[in-house]
Nucleic acid binder design. Structure first.
Lengths: 223, 223
DNA sequence: TGTACATCAGTGAACGCGCGTTCACTGATGTAC
DNA sequence: TGTACATCAGTGAACGCGCGTTCACTGATGTAC
């Protein structure tokens, strides 16, 4: 239909814009667009986030945006994937820390804090991931899984360590998934609780105790 | 500006359409529109739900829709409010059941099932409520609070019954909120777990045990 | 050091689309007498 | 039982808006010789 000029249009759109391979200048623009996407996400619902807005924020034109991303979601996905790696740090904490006795209780507290901090730092991105997951978007669901899976598997292994403390018909994976559910939900609704008059410190204490119990099967060390 | 004909336009739009008081026929149309909204919500993300679609499904025109609702969200809110009352049944269950010993463990199981069933029955509506809450929509947040608050308060009262079993610095409200978080999250991500290979039965068992422990402070009766 | 050329980078302006929303209108139903 | 009138109910057709997306173009940067 349209006269092909010179560049062989890449349909896969893997790395380049529309057949160009990016140089320094291009990469800078791209970063600016990503940064603006992240910033705007703090203020706007991701459904209302528009190419025009992002372009304007980055001091460029909508046409430029399309040289780097196929649409707004593509940019958000890129940000989300970069974030999903942060689950590894939590998994490492779980695997390497001591879960026995008082030290184990401290480990539980650290993990709870780890979740709260991770959500604090990436609040808007995690909100989008949760949102899209609930809506059934598989790409975001995969990111969420990737993030939480590492944590769940690490916890499952720890739970198995305490197998003798748990009833034999308890599934360690389900147990771990249950705990992760609790941690994720509390972290993402933290401000909801505060708005409702429940102090985060109190939640932290409750969750820490529950976490310790579900992992070790033992009563937490008395207050 | 425009010539006022006869009806005194109500700006509040409280009950009536545009100054008309609804009769039988009108109420039927209205019900049909609500039903269609609910049905379409099962298939479509609520963001993509359009007045035109709803009207078409109800066999009427978009103009008619606006006689009954100011916009799509208004219709959804109406559905959600009607559903929020269902929290009362769970609260009653919590308040009237026995929480001690083996009977208490059964009560915990019933409550977990109650959550799973409630979410099963109103999956799409609850999804919208969760979604909008995460996005900071206050109206939906209030509905969510209304629904979960009844449960949280009931649980808090039960937790207080077991005060001697819990450490003195434990806040019963925070403890109850923690449990409700767990229940709500698991109920809404149920299919996520199954997709991921975790059987609902296993989750149910884990959650029931955790619930029993967080409420009573005692080890659940061995399997 | 200079010139020509290829490629990268960016954009103004326009088109099309599809939804929200409204207006002026027709049709249906009820009720007073 | 019939007629007139008020009110309820519903709609076709159009307008406007704002975003997504693209095209044909100009400008910037690098590099070969």
């Amino acid at each position: 239909m349209s006269p092909v000029k010179a560049g062989k249009r890449r349909t896969d759109g893997a790395r380049a814009a529309d057949g160009r391979t990016p140089g320094n200048r291009g990469r800078a623009t791209r970063e600016r667009l990503l940064k603006c996407t992240a910033d705007l996400l703090e203020k706007t619902s991701y459904r209302d986030l528009t190419v025009i807005e992002i372009a304007r924020c980055a001091g460029t034109s909508p046409a430029t945006f399309y040289q780097y991303f196929s649409d707004v979601e593509a940019a958000i996905l890129m940000l989300a994937r970069a974030m999903a790696g942060h689950g590894a740090a939590l998994a490492t904490l779980i695997r390497e820390a001591n879960w026995k006795g008082k030290a184990g209780f401290d480990t539980a507290g650290e993990l709870v804090n780890g979740f709260l901090e991770l959500w604090e730092e990436h609040r808007s991105l995690l909100r989008v991931v949760d949102l899209a997951t609930l809506e059934g978007d598989l790409r975001f669901q995969n990111i969420r899984t990737h993030l939480l899976n590492q944590v769940t598997e690490a916890l499952r292994d720890v739970v198995e360590t305490f197998r003798s403390q748990h009833p034999s018909d308890l599934d360690p994976t389900a147990q771990a998934a249950t705990i992760v559910s609790l941690l994720a939900h509390v972290a993402s609704h933290r401000y909801g609780f505060e708005f409702w008059g429940i102090r985060t410190d109190h939640i932290r204490r409750s969750v820490t105790r529950t976490l310790y119990w579900t992992v070790t099967g033992r009563q937490p060390p008395g207050a």
